[in-house]
Amino acid sequence: MLRDLATMLEDLQGGMQTLAQQSAVRLTQAEMTLPVDVALVLKDGSCALLADAPRNAADAPWWQAQSRLTVSFDAVPTEWLP
């Protein structure tokens, strides 16, 4: 079951937030390139993009080549956010 792309991004960001609070070393930037499964569904009167990391390694042979998501996060003051 694929999840919304937004949910996956929130999960990734949440992981970094936890790491930043626990570690003595400050994390300022992170970039990750991930294989993703992409699908479109009709939801709430519009088209929603589902994109999630594969659930397990066994999924890989199904795909000739995975779609890839590259996302970079920056540590910024909260007040800068729109």
Partner: peptide, 12 residues
């Protein structure tokens, strides 16, 4: 906090 700076998506 961490904010998404850039996103690149290669969609098959």
């Amino acid at each position: 906090t961490f904010a998404v700076k850039d996103v690149s998506l290669d969609v098959r």
